[in-house]
């Protein structure tokens, strides 16, 4: 037991450090929450307009879709490339400070993975309370609804945490792309944005065309945000929970494998810029 604690110590310390670091920027934290809440209203209003004036059938009711938007505004903090907190390692790779990272007696992949996780968990924890409150306080059609049931809420939280395992693996693949400094930050950025869209952060995946529904549901990135949210609004039955978690873990395993190999290979031919 104590060896496990010894092994976990550096990673927990990184998490604690990121959280306290993030919290000290009061103005930034609050302004980000306000922006988030504003976007929640705006995006909900767009959804409402579509439902009012659109024709045809959708897999989600309007209330479900609006609620999904609000939960997205909170859950988005867990997506790669959101909230700027991946930049702890990102900036170091780009500016060449990555040298110091490699000087730590830790496995590089685990170290970066832990930093990525810390960078996602910290803003999520800061946002979850105030944003839920904001969503519930917004009146009328564009306000957030309650979860389908307490069990659905639990299923959502559970799958969000397994989704985070995927999300951090994606961030690490982004780091691997960045390590090829001659290619610049473009490829990594495009990759991150693509995964955000595939996670349903622009439009809930169930509102995409019927023909791509199967593909959208089973691709690796839906598990980061969209699938957990389906549980929240009740558009996915609780009986699907084991299957969803299994799929998330399989994809996470595959992405971790790829990222680990890729970063390992890049370390051998790394260029450390400057100085």
């Amino acid at each position: 037991m104590s060896t496990i604690r010894m092994r976990a110590r550096p990673y927990l310390s990184i998490l604690r450090k990121t959280l306290t670091g993030k919290m000290q920027y009061r103005a930034a934290t609050w302004s980000q929450l306000v922006t988030n809440a504003f976007w929640g209203c705006a995006r909900s209003a767009i959804i409402v307009a579509f439902y009012r004036y659109g024709s045809g059938m959708a897999a989600l009711t309007m209330e479900q879709a609006v609620t999904m938007i609000w939960v997205q505004q909170i859950g988005m903090n867990l997506l790669p490339g959101m909230g700027g907190m991946d930049q702890a390692v990102w900036g170091k790779i780009v500016k060449g400070d990555v040298g110091y990272e490699l000087l730590r007696p830790m496995d590089v992949y685990s170290h970066w993975y832990a930093s990525a996780a810390a960078g996602k968990i910290a803003p999520f924890l800061l946002a979850v309370g105030p944003m839920t409150l904001a969503g519930l306080l917004v009146p009328g059609e564009i306000g957030m609804g309650l979860p389908a049931s307490a069990w659905h809420l639990l299923a959502c939280l559970l799958t969000l945490s397994t989704g985070l395992v995927i999300s951090c693996a994606v961030i690490c693949i982004g780091y691997a792309m960045l390590m090829n400094v001659n290619a610049g930050t473009g490829p990594a950025n495009i990759f991150m944005y693509a995964t955000q869209i595939l996670a349903g952060s622009v439009l809930p995946l169930q509102l995409w065309p019927e023909s791509v529904q199967g593909l959208m549901k089973y691709q690796p990135f839906s598990g980061m945000l969209d699938l957990p949210l389906r549980f929240f609004v009740g558009s996915e039955p609780l009986s699907a929970l084991p299957g969803v978690i299994l799929m998330q873990l399989i994809w996470a395993g595959a992405l971790i494998f790829i990222g680990r190999k890729w970063i390992g290979r890049n370390l051998k031919k790394l260029t450390i810029q400057g100085g």
Binding site: G96, D97, G99, Y100, L102, L103, R104, P105, M106, D107, G274, G275
Partner: peptide, 16 residues
């Protein structure tokens, strides 16, 4: 990993 545990490095132009 074993190696870096036994050394210290200061890059004057970077910060750790």
């Amino acid at each position: 990993e074993q190696h870096v545990a036994d050394i210290g490095v200061v890059f004057g132009q970077k910060s750790q």
